[in-house]
Simulated scan of single mutants.
Amino acid sequence: MDRLQSMRVFAKVVEQGSFAGAATALEMSNAVVTRNVADLEAHLGTRLLNRTTRKLSLTETGQQYLERVRQILLDIDDADALVSATSKNPSGTLRIYCQPGFGQSQLAQLLPLYAKAVPEVVLDVTLADHNVDLVEEGYDVGIFIGLQKFDASMIARRLATSTVVLCASPDYIARRGAPATPADVARHDCLNFAFEQLRHHWPVQWENKSLNVPITSRMVSNNGAVLREAALAGMGIMIRSSFTLEDDFASGRLVQLLKGHHLGIVSVMMVYPSRRQMSGKLRSFVDFMSARFPRPESDPWLPAA
């Protein structure tokens, strides 16, 4: 027995004053309506309705039960309406995970625009380098970069591609000159990420070829912001994902070196649990980010050649 369905049928029978009237209102057969009420009475072990050939009337127990049933049905309808409204209208708290470099350089600028467009959504944003389990850790959506891992069952939408490029400040270039070929990098001071695979060589790529260029590190750090400050101060050549360099390139604080060469191309992925039954807040964020990055196969952050 579907008890909730039987309760709805019972309340409708009383409202309509007859089994036939309830059957018409609910678009059911008389037999189905009668069976639902009979099953409910059997489940409760008591009679709810007095039946005569001329009319129906509630028993004393039936009257008490009806009052509770009507309140239960109202509460359920209110809960359904609340969830339905939430799923359609963006509201509530949206928990976002993001890789720090993209979060600081790109997402931080985009979130105020999203918040203005969707004022009922509260943003809860976490920036972290470690891999996260979105579902287990309670995130609605995540922005993952490059080799960061996420559950294969997640929906993953590429927002854009980012190129890892070489750059330096105008001051450094004025003092030391700009490398004309990848091999020239070996004669320059380098600002290096603290990854073992980059400690002694940079894999510079061009025209589907790759060259492991030996380097001399002037500074090593696990923090991109520290390396950026050193590059701005003219300490050496830095490698960095293009999405972190957009403003520096536009302002001329940093200059891209060896255009056409790079150290890799990484994907910027937006990841979320499911397309089905997506909440309004998540759908609004997915649509917003997708509109901001209409060409997922391109790098929108590199200066025009």
Results as ranks from 00 to 15, higher is better:
Pro203Val: 07
Ala115Gln: 08
Leu44His: 03
Val268Leu: 08
His200Tyr: 08
Ala152Thr: 12
Val286His: 06
Lys209Gln: 15
Arg3Trp: 08
Cys98Ala: 15
Thr181Phe: 07
Ala20Pro: 00
Leu48Ala: 05
Thr59Ser: 03
Glu196Ala: 15
Asp124Ile: 04
Pro294Phe: 00
Glu136Leu: 13
Met1Gly: 11
Phe285Cys: 00
Pro303Tyr: 01
Asp80Asn: 14
Gly224Lys: 13
Glu207Tyr: 11
Val164Cys: 11
Ser274Cys: 10
Gln71Tyr: 08
Tyr139Gly: 09
Ser221Cys: 04
Ser217Ala: 14
Arg54Ala: 15
Ile96Glu: 03
Gln71Gly: 08
Pro273Trp: 02
Asp287Cys: 12
Arg68Pro: 07
Val164Phe: 08
Gly92Asn: 09
Leu282Ser: 06
Pro100Asp: 05
Arg276Gly: 06
Lys55Cys: 12
Ser251Thr: 15
Asp124Glu: 06
Arg253Lys: 14
Val255Phe: 05
Trp301Met: 07
Gln277Tyr: 12
Glu229Trp: 04
Gly236Thr: 04
Met7Pro: 04
Ile72Thr: 14
Pro100Lys: 07
Phe195Met: 15
Gly280Tyr: 02
Cys167Trp: 04
Ser298Arg: 14
Arg276Lys: 11
Thr163Asp: 03
Arg253Ser: 12
Asn50Asp: 13
Ala156Cys: 09
Ala81Thr: 13
Arg176Gln: 10
Leu48Ser: 05
Gly45Phe: 00
Pro179Met: 04
Val204Cys: 06
Lys12Cys: 15
Thr34Glu: 08
Phe144Asp: 03
Glu41Gly: 07
Ser87Gln: 13
Val271Cys: 04
Leu191Gly: 06
Ser242Lys: 07
Gly264Gln: 08
Arg51Tyr: 01
Leu159Asp: 02
Tyr97Arg: 08
Asp39Val: 09
Val121Ile: 10
Ala152Asp: 12
Ala81Tyr: 06
Ala304Ile: 10
Val226Tyr: 02
Arg51Trp: 02
Leu302Gly: 01
Arg275Lys: 13
Thr61Ser: 05
Phe243Arg: 00
Val164Lys: 12
Leu302Lys: 04
Val37Ile: 06
Ala178Ile: 06
Gln197His: 11
Ala31Asn: 14
Thr34Cys: 09
Pro300Met: 00
Ala230Asn: 02
Arg68Glu: 14
His262Pro: 01
Val220Glu: 01
Val13Tyr: 00
Gly280Met: 00
Trp301Gly: 03
Val268Glu: 00
Gly236Ser: 05
Ser251Lys: 10
Thr46Gly: 10
Ala81Ile: 09
Val14Ser: 00
Asn222Pro: 10
Arg240Asp: 09
Lys116Trp: 01
Trp301Ala: 03
Asp77Ala: 14
Phe243Ala: 02
